[in-house]
């Protein structure tokens, strides 16, 4: 961005999208595809200036979806001045202290994750108020640990834990009972992401 290059400073936030209109559209299509087809990996290409330690997929998702209207909560590991400044500069999103007040949460699976019940789940009359969690994980691979079933999945899909502890998956599986209330998740690793809408039911091998 010319504004940044003309006045460089050590504290200037990284550049974000170089072509915001087209890149946010391309990122949105990846996010839409991932949410419409849970378990299938979508990728976000291109160059995205972002703070150290934040993966491309998560950065792109945040830039594409967050703005002045969306309170954001930063989880352990992401609650840094660098990320906060970058997010505020590019999106203007208010960073909130209470997880339950956030519409989006940026979480790092390298750190202990908060209990999923801390986040807004929406209500039966307005389920869309349930939060969207963007979770950065170390891998999307691994041994099969569970089955996902639901809209967008043709015959059920075998999924690995995607770098998240089984306690997390137990929590997420339990949320299905509250449908249509719930949380929508994106698991982001490098340039790839997987969507997990609240409509997906999770079963574990022992139950099957």
């Amino acid at each position: 961005m010319t504004m940044l290059s003309s006045a460089p400073s050590s504290s200037a936030p990284p550049a974000g999208f170089s072509d915001p209109v087209q890149q946010s559209q391309a990122s949105f299509r990846a996010l839409l595809d991932a949410m419409a087809r849970p378990g299938r990996i979508a990728s976000i290409a291109g160059d995205i200036g972002r703070p150290d330690g934040v993966t491309q997929a998560l950065a792109a998702a945040a830039l594409t979806l967050c703005d002045l209207d969306t309170p954001v909560w930063l989880g352990p590991g992401f609650d840094t001045p660098a990320l906060k400044n970058w997010l505020r500069f590019h999106t203007g999103a208010p960073v909130v202290a209470q997880a339950g007040a956030a519409q989006f949460a940026l979480l790092n699976a390298g750190q202990p994750l908060p209990n999923l019940e801390n986040f807004a789940q929406g209500s039966d009359e307005a389920p869309e108020k349930g939060a969207t969690l963007l979770i950065q994980v170390a891998t999307l691979q691994g041994k099969t640990a569970m089955q996902w079933r639901g809209p967008g999945i043709k015959d059920g899909v075998a999924m690995p834990p995607c770098g998240l502890p089984m306690a997390f998956w137990q929590q997420r599986a339990a949320l299905s009972a509250a449908f249509p209330r719930g949380l929508d998740l994106y698991l982001c690793c490098s340039t790839d992401l997987i969507g997990l809408p609240r409509s997906t039911a999770i079963t574990f091998a022992t139950e099957a």
Binding site: S24, Q25, F28, L31, L32, M35, A36, T64, L65, C66, D67, D69, T70, P127, E128, G130, T132, P151, G152, P180, D184, P197, R198, S199
Partner: peptide, 15 residues
């Protein structure tokens, strides 16, 4: 567009 995109994602998540 962002506002509409967020609505579309929630719509997909709650068929």
């Amino acid at each position: 567009k962002r506002m509409i995109r967020r609505a579309i994602l929630k719509a997909v998540a709650i068929p």
